[in-house]
Amino acid sequence: MLLINCPYCEATLPELEFAYAGEAHIDRPADPSALSDEEWRDFLFIRTNARGPHFERWRHIHGCGRFFNAVRDTVSDRFLMTYKAGEARPVLNALEAAE
């Protein structure tokens, strides 16, 4: 069981309190009707499927209830960092260097 740091609670807590919520930094288009079928398909279904650091969303569902973002290495299953929803996507190189 992983330990996950909730950036709102500022606490590291067991994975049981959290729910995974898919890839992060995929904004819902402001006007979906303006998108072509292909663009909308990409928004709906196409994901990075990263091998290595992956930007993803989690919800502290059995805690504060907030959605937040995380960078997790899909190979080592290690969290590199978590940050609040709406914050800019962190720069990967710096993170990897820190690891």
Binding site: A21, G65, A85
Partner: peptide, 13 residues
């Protein structure tokens, strides 16, 4: 509720 919270918190804060 989870879906509503998702949209409210992350798409339409």
């Amino acid at each position: 509720l989870n879906m509503m919270e998702d949209y409210l918190q992350t798409e339409w804060p």
